[in-house]
Structure formats: structure tokens, C-alpha cells
Design a protein around this nucleic acid. Structure first.
Length: 278
DNA sequence: TACATTGTTCCGTC
DNA sequence: CGACGGAACAATGT
């Protein structure tokens, strides 16, 4: 379940694997991975997919970008948006891996986009600017200080739900939204409109710290395996229903908001937040 | 089998 | 009509 940190890691990986190389061949394993728009579905189909893929041959990869959870690749004069969905990842191997959707042969190796659940996709774009359409500011945007965050998240909605709204702030998913709220000591059901300046400042700082730590926790230059599968759970509250809060020892609770699980600590997360500790 | 996961969209309600 | 909540949808492993 890639959020901003994982997408950023993949972007950096694509910088190393692809940028500066010329595309010798494209292997379109599943043409439904190419979509005319982000909102179209695999079953909708798109008759231009194959011709777009073919048109890439001979062009070179010139750069990468990331906005929120979207990655961009500059291929020739155009750009392509890559959305990882739930299970999208990249594999560098001569042979297509399981669930391979498309492969870019850049001469010295082949880079495959593999996606078991097929929620991920590639969307050809006119230019780099199109990467940002429909998105609020990136979650690591310097403008998102306390005041900027308050302006981005107006209304009576629960702050957890609002943090997941990519049109308001781009890059947070279910895990890092919950972790940031725990860091800030803010209860997830708190209506945005009831947060004061101190609450917004702590939340803005918590988001920045949460994402920065997650980015740094991913070893540069390596593939990574999502940590909740098998290994130790590195999160304070996510996936820890019933376990003691690492800050106050109260039992972590799970509630459903907007159809999604929210993990939080009723002991030290309060409406409006608590004073930042330490 | 039912359920869990995500981002997006659609629809009903206030 | 805007805001918001809830449900549906995509795919598939458990």
C-alpha cells in the first residue's frame, strides 16, 4: 500500500534504472494497464494503448517526478503518470515477473511494472503539469505549515478523513495519516473546524516528521518489502488494535471511518489535540 | 464464502 | 447547491 514515502523511493529507483537510457523495446503484457485517464477502469479498455506503447520505442527517458502518490516519467517529449495502486511495484529482470503488466527494455536491462491487484495504471500525459491536476499541495510542500494546513482542510469533516482527501493534501494514505494524528495527539474524529492554531501547527509538524522518517527508513538503492507483511510492525498505532500505546500505555482502538480502519489511542489523542510533548 | 485492502466515483441526505 | 457520509467498484489472496 504505497503512500508518499514508498512512491518517492520508487521514483528514485526509476531515476537510477531508467533515466538517461533509450527504450529499445516495450513489452505490453496487459494492455489494460494503460489508461486514458486515472479514473477509467481496467475493464473499460482503451484502443490507443498498444499504439502508445509502440510509440515509446526509440525515445529516451529524460527525468522523473513525484506529486503526492503519483510518479511521473518523462519519456521523449511526453510524460507518463504511474500510479502504483495497492500492489504496484517494479522489478528489474530479463524475464517478466509474476503479475507483470508492462516492461521497458532499455538495453542493459528490462524494467517491469508488476501489479497483482491491477489497481495501478499508466496514464500518458501532455506535459509535466498534468501530473498535478486534481491534487492539493504535496504533503511535503513547505507551504503546508500550520496555517497552510488549516487552509487546505476546511469544513466539519473528521480530520482523519480530510487527510486522506488527495484533492486537499496529496500523499497521505491510511497508515501515515493515522500515525501523524497519533504524533500530534489529535483524535481522528475531530472535526477540522474545531482545531485551533496550536492543533494545526502540531499536525503540520507531525505530518512532516512522519513522512520524513518513513522516507529515511527506506534503504536507498534497494527494493523494499512492505513491512506489515511478516516482519515487525514499525508503526505506533497502525495495525495495533488492543496493544498498549507506546506513549501512554492505553489500549489502541480501531474504528472505521469512511469505510476504512483507523487506529488510534483514546488515552493520548484528544479532540483538538494535546500540547506537544518534549 | 465473506472479508480485507486502496483511490475514485456515484448517490442519497442534510 | 455545497458539503458530507456511505457504498460501490476494481482484483485477488486469505
Amino acid at each position: 500500500m504505497p503512500e508518499l514515502p514508498e512512491v518517492e523511493a520508487w521514483r528514485a529507483t526509476m531515476e537510477r534504472w531508467l533515466v538517461g537510457r533509450s527504450i529499445a523495446a516495450v513489452h505490453l503484457v496487459d494492455s489494460a494497464v494503460i489508461r486514458p485517464k486515472l479514473s477509467t477502469r481496467p475493464s473499460d479498455g482503451w484502443d490507443q494503448a498498444q499504439s502508445w506503447a509502440s510509440s515509446l520505442v526509440g525515445s529516451s527517458v529524460k527525468g522523473t517526478a513525484r506529486v503526492g502518490k503519483r510518479m511521473g516519467l518523462q519519456l521523449g517529449e511526453g510524460w507518463v503518470l504511474v500510479h502504483l495502486g495497492m500492489t504496484g511495484r517494479f522489478v528489474r529482470d530479463p524475464e517478466p515477473p509474476r503479475f507483470a503488466r508492462i516492461g521497458l527494455d532499455v538495453g542493459d536491462h528490462v524494467v517491469w511494472f508488476a501489479d497483482q491487484r491491477r489497481f495501478g495504471c499508466l496514464v500518458p500525459l501532455q506535459g509535466r503539469d498534468a501530473l498535478c491536476v486534481g491534487l492539493g499541495p504535496d504533503a511535503l510542500d513547505a507551504a503546508l505549515d500550520g496555517e497552510g494546513l488549516a487552509a487546505a482542510l476546511p469544513g466539519r469533516r473528521a480530520v482523519k478523513t480530510a487527510l486522506l482527501d488527495q484533492a486537499r493534501i496529496a500523499g497521505l494514505g491510511n497508515i501515515h495519516a493515522a500515525e501523524a494524528l497519533w504524533r500530534a495527539g489529535i483524535a481522528p474524529a475531530t472535526p477540522c473546524a474545531t482545531l485551533d492554531a496550536l492543533g494545526w501547527r502540531s499536525l503540520a509538524a507531525a505530518i512532516r516528521e512522519q513522512l520524513a522518517e518513513a522516507v529515511e527508513a527506506i534503504p536507498p538503492g534497494e527494493d523494499f518489502v512492505y513491512v506489515t507483511e511478516g516482519g515487525d510492525n514499525p508503526f505506533a498505532v497502525y495495525g495495533r488494535e488492543g496493544e498498549p500505546c507506546p506513549r501512554c500505555a492505553e489500549a489502541i482502538t480501531r474504528v472505521v471511518q469512511g469505510g476504512r480502519s483507523t487506529f488510534w489511542c483514546p488515552g493520548c489523542q484528544r479532540p483538538g489535540g494535546v500540547a506537544v510533548q518534549g
